[in-house]
Write a protein that binds this DNA or RNA. Structure first.
Lengths: 222, 222
DNA sequence: TAGATTGTTAATCGATTAACAATC
DNA sequence: TAGATTGTTAATCGATTAACAATC
């Protein structure tokens, strides 16, 4: 298990997966080494940033040659915790909840979706792939049994606060929130907002207000 | 039409939708005024930030009372461009593409999804709600006819670069990219990454590395 | 060796927060 | 009026970028 000594800033944490994506892409085309300058160029950022970010994860490049792709890729896989599975419940078996439940790739990155929950009697008992849809009233019991690390909240905005309360009551401490709403939760619960509406609105603001500056800009929304 | 004099920073742009969410919530419970301190408290940020952010959109609060909710809500609706419809194509009629196509709320916020595209002959011709699935080969022609403002890319990572090339060739200048991959596009094309895998990875890094600091923290991922 | 690229320290830049006069 | 809250200027903080010695 990796021990992180220095605190890693959120901007850095957000960039780490991008480096991993690049290492994968380069690995596939059979390249052995890549420089921080190449990575920076692909991402539209500064090369010093790349070296600093990678350094803080505890990996070292080689002067003169750069970063060994296979080796650093393996390092990232360990550091990013792909083998350390996090169990999650999806709360809300609507279109988005089902789409996320069916998204196979999550597994490769350490996310194991174990079940779905809904309040619609017609949905309870259904199977999404191998994952069963349970009644929201069974959440507390199943959490006791399975001890999921997080709840992925994909219910309509109107119900999101009530459902968040149930999640908190069930003892789950992390909510990945897809509802376009500001949840009120106790201090020890982490809410990670993934508001696609806000994301779209921000994008369209960028388009209308900052158009002249967009060239060469690639925006990451994590 | 709103004219923006000062450039608005991306962190500010990302916070604007949150203020709107709060105004909506407060409006529903019938409150007339809200102070920047209350909003800041709900979002876990500083109240000066709230006042500065709102000021830059051209709205003014009232000393002693705060921000008039109905009025500022209307201001935000105009400023955030909800009535200025942006037409979009969804490229990739998989689970996620279909979920987004069925998401009614986008319309209220100015996003009009007009059609879907796929390369699977079994999907071409299907209707998702009122939206038809076209062949990816029809993209250029339909873009000439409809002039969509953006492409929402929801194909598997393996095909994302090829499909992005088609999107660029069709003349679309904005890509909202849900594929977990770094796209290469010409300088005049904006890529807005919405990589849910990277988002999950960042979240799990937060959980493992910064656990002690998470209290009271609410994270927005836009 | 010379040249390229690293890791790291110092400088810059910009965002956040503090302080406070202006205002209803 | 007094008190609360605003808008804004100044100070702080932290992230990004520049500079450069160390290294293979």
């Amino acid at each position: 298990m990796q021990t992180i000594s220095k605190r890693i800033s959120i901007p850095t944490l957000r960039r780490l997966p991008s480096y991993y994506h690049i290492l994968c892409q380069q690995s596939e085309i059979g390249i052995e080494y890549i420089s921080s300058a190449s990575m920076a160029n692909l991402l539209g950022i500064d090369d010093t940033q790349v070296r600093k970010d990678i350094a803080i994860t505890g990996y070292n490049g080689k002067p003169k040659v750069g970063f060994e792709i296979k080796d650093s890729k393996a390092h990232f896989e360990k550091f990013l915790g792909f083998n350390n599975k996090k169990r999650a419940f999806i709360i809300g078996a609507g279109n988005l909840g089902i789409a996320l439940a069916k998204y196979q790739d999550f597994n490769k990155y350490g996310l194991e979706i174990v079940a779905l929950f809904d309040n619609d009697p017609h949905k309870i008992g259904l199977k999404i792939g191998y994952k069963k849809v349970f009644s929201i009233f069974d959440l507390t019991n199943l959490e006791k049994e399975i001890n999921a690390h997080m709840a992925i909240l994909t219910v309509p905005a109107e119900n999101a606060q009530d459902v968040a309360d149930s999640i908190v009551n069930a003892g789950i401490k992390t909510i990945w929130n897809f509802a376009p709403i500001n949840l009120r939760v106790p201090d020890d619960v982490l809410v990670w907002n993934q508001d696609l509406i806000a994301s779209f609105v921000t994008l369209s603001l960028m388009l209308s207000s900052n158009k002249q500056e967009l060239n060469k800009e690639v925006c990451t929304l994590i």
